[in-house]
């Protein structure tokens, strides 16, 4: 078939593009249900053990969390720019924007890893049988909070890692990719990346900002 479409099923590029966008959105909605389910569990736990969760949340690093949110928002901006550049066929800036996106994602993971490390050091990580030491009033349910924290942030980080790998792969294949396919892939990856960003936008206040006042 013609080389302008990726799939034999479509006869025109435009139809395929619309289908791709729609397919990506359907996938994103599916992913939203995944995170929604975990959030649901979190909200029930928080409504039962509010004070313990508030006390535990204070032990997360607000500066690092805020910085990371800014980093991720910037990465979203970068990949949105990449998409804009591909639309006007400016390939060089597009590549740079993609590289920025991947780097910012990596920085996010790096900061996250630092947070994890300090939480391990403080004995706040009930993971792999590590001892949990918490001086607040209700250590049992504070432990539950940290269980949620690690489950949710690691699930998010896993998604981010997938995104970085896909961007890296896309950049490696970039020279041999036709122009139409470049646009098409940047858009698809961009939608995914923005979604992962949105997930963090919810995780940040839900985990870090309980009762900071």
């Amino acid at each position: 078939m013609s080389t302008t479409t990726e799939s034999v099923a479509f006869d025109t590029r435009a139809r395929e593009k619309a289908a791709d966008t729609f397919g990506m959105w359907v996938f994103i909605c599916s992913e939203a249900m995944l995170f929604g389910a975990v959030l649901l569990l979190f909200f029930f736990a928080r409504s039962s053990y509010g004070p313990a969760f508030a006390a535990a949340s204070q032990h997360l690093s607000l500066p690092l969390g805020t910085l990371n949110t800014a980093v991720l928002l910037t990465s979203s901006f970068a990949i949105a720019l990449a998409h804009m550049f591909t639309a006007s066929r400016r390939w060089r800036p597009a590549v740079w924007a993609l590289i920025c996106t991947g780097l910012l994602g990596t920085i996010f993971l790096f900061i996250k890893a630092m947070e994890y490390a300090s939480e391990f050091k403080e004995g706040l990580a009930p993971v792999l049988g590590a001892p949990f030491r918490f001086s607040g009033p209700d250590p049992t349910h504070a432990e539950l909070f940290f269980a949620f924290y690690f489950a949710m942030t690691s699930l998010h980080a896993l998604h981010l890692i997938c995104g970085i790998v896909v961007i890296a792969g896309m950049l490696l294949l970039w020279p041999g990719t036709t122009e139409a396919k470049r646009t098409h892939r940047v858009q698809a990856v961009g939608l995914y990346w923005h979604f992962v960003d949105i997930v963090w936008v919810f995780l940040f206040p839900v985990l870090y900002l309980i009762n900071r006042a």
Partner: peptide, 27 residues
């Protein structure tokens, strides 16, 4: 506090969806 935080998170999600993901223009 929680309601305000969630509302702001929702606002951010809307900004990303509309301006970055072009939700409004995609059919």
């Amino acid at each position: 506090n929680s309601s305000v935080n969630l509302a702001i998170a929702a606002a951010k999600a809307v900004v990303i969806a509309l301006l970055f993901m072009h939700l409004a223009g995609g059919g």
